[in-house]
Structures are given as structure tokens and as C-alpha cells.
Design a protein around this nucleic acid. Structure first.
Length: 111
DNA sequence: CGGTTGACTGTTT
DNA sequence: TAAACAGCCAACC
């Protein structure tokens, strides 16, 4: 009876991915925001960990997730430029310091 | 099985 | 505005 993967873990993962998948084009959400929407408050890091394990060709809009400071968390060389390119192509603008104005682009899901 | 690491964040300096 | 800190916890070694 051991080693059966825990259903709970996989469910949490799926819920996080579902939230990411629902972020509209041209808007962004923070890791913490995704965690809350998925019912996992304060698990921002888990969101990052899971996104980091996505397969390279994932159809998910993972690029619409940024950190609370409005900057890209990926390290240079790990896809950071790809994320920025994708966002800019959707109309999301970056400041000279590489920051996104969250007050303007943050996704606000309808309650 | 314990220690380290990291696509994080809110608070305090 | 920026840096330091503490809390967080799954994945890795």
C-alpha cells in the first residue's frame, strides 16, 4: 500500500494549471494570485515549481504569470526573453526597467 | 532521511 | 525605491 501517488497533490496541480489556463490574453496574474484562485493561499512558490516542470511545448499560457513586483521571475537564459516577447505581442508593455504595470494589466477575475 | 534550492511574497529596514 | 528577512513547501541530492 504504499507508493500510490497522492490524489490530492495531483488535484492541486490540475487546479493551478486550470487557473493559469483561464488568464485572458493581454493580461497577467501573479504567482500568489494564481495560488489564491486555486484555493492554495500562500503557496506562490508551489505555482512557480509546477510551472517550471511544464513540458517545453505546453499549450498553457504560462507566460502570463509574473511575480508580485511585476517583473519576470525566469532567469535569463531559462526562457525569460520568450516570456517577455509573448507578453509584448499581446500588448503588455514593459517599463524601461523591465517592469509591468500591474495596476493596469493585472487580471481581475469576476467574482 | 536531513539539508539545500528556488518561475514567491508580505513586512520591515 | 531597494534590500534584507522570515515564512513557505515540493523537488532534488
Amino acid at each position: 500500500m504504499s507508493a500510490r501517488p497522492r490524489r490530492g497533490d495531483d488535484q492541486r496541480r490540475q487546479r493551478i494549471l486550470a487557473v493559469v489556463d483561464s488568464i485572458p490574453r493581454g493580461r497577467v496574474a501573479t504567482y500568489g494570485q494564481v495560488a489564491i484562485e486555486a484555493g492554495l493561499a500562500r503557496r506562490a512558490r508551489l505555482v512557480g515549481t509546477i510551472l517550471g516542470h511544464l513540458p517545453p511545448r505546453s499549450p498553457l499560457p504560462w507566460h502570463r504569470v509574473v511575480n508580485a513586483a511585476g517583473t519576470i521571475s525566469l532567469r535569463p537564459g531559462a526562457g525569460a526573453s520568450l516570456q517577455r516577447r509573448r507578453l509584448e505581442r499581446e500588448g503588455v508593455r514593459f517599463t524601461a526597467k523591465g517592469r509591468i504595470d500591474l495596476a493596469r494589466y493585472r487580471w481581475r477575475p469576476d467574482v
